[in-house]
Nucleic acid binder design. Structure first.
Ligand SMILES: [Mn+2]
Ligand SMILES: [Mn+2]
Ligand SMILES: [Zn+2]
Ligand SMILES: [Zn+2]
Lengths: 144, 144
DNA sequence: AGTGTCAATGCAATTCATTATCATTTGTGG
DNA sequence: CCACAAATGATAATGAATTGCATTGACACT
């Protein structure tokens, strides 16, 4: 499998866009990240490595990375869009604790199959889906 | 089953809030609606019936109605929150055409059951979920 | 090295949905 | 009817995300 950076380069080349140090740095930064970062949080990490980079470039690059299928936007219902690397990763959905924010990655083949089936039954060509399960985790439930 | 207006009145009374003509009118307007309206769209309909009502009151009332479990917020990924009456309605999710915006209500017992199960396996008390299937409808696919 | 061409950048300003502020009005229990 | 907390409408403010713009950079051809 190709490295994400290679995939990004190929994507940029194909779109007649340029591979810049900013774009490389932003991708590298998000790849090194375990958590699901917001644009703002990512910007802080990026800035720590190169303080000359602007917030807008982070937004612009994230959009490119999403379009290139290298990262995926997430909606944890906390008011900001979060992102996670998706290239080479298996698709998954999320189970989120609405108290502490903890989130668990889930993947259920039964559900995934039914989603495809439902779309087909309705004459739709399914292109994507979002599924978020919200609840309260064990720790938060029994207190603190 | 109680009427939604009764339920709203009871909710307001219980919270020491007031039943005002604006609130009643806003609820009545959204109940008469087939579509999934945004706050802005609802505001237009409300204003047609009473032009003195302000936009902020619509936002405030929608929040109350959501909290009272009478309407439900939706995310069709078009930049605005949409709402639909949910009191007395069976829960359902949505399949949305990303081209024309058409949406179909879906309910799959298998999926719903698995969601509960997954949460339980992870020690979560499930409180809600969001599931949106995005695709392109038959008309938009062959149409044009 | 010089030049032409565009895309990319950082910054600041802007957009747009949603919230907050506040002076005034209104619903409701007593 | 009264008192008074809550609600309202107008308006300003917020905050994430986008955009305009002057400048910079990368690359190609000379
Ligand atoms: Mn994840
Ligand atoms: Mn619906
Ligand atoms: Zn928790
Ligand atoms: Zn369509």
């Amino acid at each position: 499998m190709k490295e994400p950076q290679e995939v990004f380069d190929a994507y940029l080349a194909e779109k007649n866009l340029k591979a810049t140090p900013q774009r490389r740095l932003i991708l590298d930064t998000i790849l090194k990240q375990k958590d699901h970062l917001s644009s703002e949080e990512l910007y802080a990490k990026v800035k720590a490595r190169d303080s000359s980079i602007g917030q807008a470039t982070v937004y612009r690059t994230l959009k490119l990375l999403v379009d290139a299928d290298i990262v995926e936007p997430l909606d944890f219902a906390d008011g900001v869009t979060r992102y996670e690397p998706s290239y080479g990763e298996e698709h998954h959905d999320h189970l989120i604790c609405t108290v502490c924010g903890k989130n668990i990655e889930i993947l259920d083949p039964t559900i995934e199959k039914r989603q495809e089936q439902i779309a087909k039954e309705q004459g739709f060509k399914l292109s994507s889906h979002k599924m978020y399960l919200y609840g309260i985790c064990n720790d938060c439930r029994k207190g603190k």
